[in-house]
């Protein structure tokens, strides 16, 4: 499994990708990407993580095709409540006679939605705060970093709880709450990276070409911070999923009857001893997806982290 890369291009393409003298911007970029992929695919666990994440994406996209039943409308409450896993109901049914497999499949959409939105909101905020603070230094740094410290001073779940309590329960508010609470570590990382590179010669060189500060930050500092940030965000995804599930479990995230893994575990709690599958199936989904993101993050770190690379 660790041997040949799963997607090995034919020899001609490989030579083109690895050419020491690329003929275009594209070829250079693709060649770099291919080298990264080659290193990544040497790590079987990372590939497994990538597989899980891809599976999550596919399941979310094709949920309506995969799910055999409606995730919201249950079956006959007299005969189809709390059925154990069987051929008809792969993961069994819950207390409202809904097919758990279908709910888990549709729940992947919620999970993916949370993960994507948090990444889209929190990463740029953290990146910008960190690089600006690190590059400009002085009072800008002090102000931005103290704001960051204030956010870091609260436990994430508690702060998210407070936000949700203020904004009202619901999945969108939960996402905003999680995003607001997850950017400070990114800002810290981006700042630390920026401090390391801001005095380097290549930054001095662009300064001497007359580049403006935004140009230096966006074009020269951000690309170097991005890779370690991507790694960190990927590793955090597991935590974000768990926080979302936690909010759902507490009834502050997705509202019923929307299928959400955390909320599903919460309902299953009542039947944990006799009908274990009600809580175990969504729980397993949370576990597998979190694990997938963690493995992917570890693999990405090996490829992207400039300190680990040659």
């Amino acid at each position: 499994m660790a041997g040949a890369p799963p997607l090995s291009p034919p020899a001609g393409t490989r030579a083109w990708l690895l050419s020491p003298e690329p003929a275009s911007r594209w070829q250079a970029r693709l060649g770099r990407f291919y080298l990264g992929w080659r290193a990544f695919s040497k790590n079987p666990l990372a590939v497994l993580g990538l597989g899980i994440v891809l599976l999550l994406v596919l399941v979310a996209i094709f949920a309506n095709l995969i799910a055999p039943y409606s995730p919201i409308v249950g079956g006959d409450l007299r005969t189809e409540r709390l059925l154990p896993p069987s051929a008809a109901h792969l993961f069994g049914t819950d207390d409202l006679a809904r097919d758990i497999f279908s709910r888990v499949v549709y729940g992947s959409r919620t999970t993916l939605w949370v993960v994507m939105l948090v990444a889209i909101i929190a990463t740029p905020i953290g990146l910008l705060m960190g690089t600006v603070a690190g590059y400009l230094g002085g009072w800008v740094d002090t102000v931005l970093m103290r704001i960051t410290d204030i956010f870091l001073a609260f436990p994430r779940l508690i702060l998210a709880l407070a936000f949700v309590a203020a904004l009202g329960p619901g999945i969108d508010n939960a996402i905003i709450a999680i995003a607001i609470t997850s950017w400070p570590p990114y800002a810290r990382i981006a700042r630390a990276e920026t401090l390391m590179i801001r005095n380097s010669d290549f930054i001095a060189a662009v300064k001497l070409q007359g580049a403006s500060t935004p140009r230096i930050i966006l074009g020269h500092v951000v690309p170097l911070c991005l890779s370690s940030l991507i790694v960190r965000v990927t590793l955090d995804m597991a935590g974000i999923i768990l926080t979302a599930a936690g909010l759902g479990f507490l009834g502050l995230g997705a509202q019923p009857p929307m299928p959400e893994w955390g909320a599903m575990v919460a309902t299953g709690r009542n039947y944990l001893i006799d009908q274990w599958w009600v809580a175990a199936m969504p729980g397993a989904a949370i576990f597998v997806v979190s694990l997938g993101f963690n493995l992917l993050g570890d693999g990405l770190r090996d490829v992207l982290d400039p300190k680990a690379a040659r």
Binding site: D201, F202, A204, Q209, G210, A211, R215, H220, L224
Partner: peptide, 25 residues
């Protein structure tokens, strides 16, 4: 600069490095 290993942006191709001053001006 003194150290050619430190004065070129590690993630930029030669093309990008050379086009940067032209774009700025």
């Amino acid at each position: 600069f003194q150290d050619p290993y430190a004065s070129l942006h590690p993630r930029h191709t030669v093309d990008r490095t050379l086009s940067e001053p032209l774009a700025i001006h």
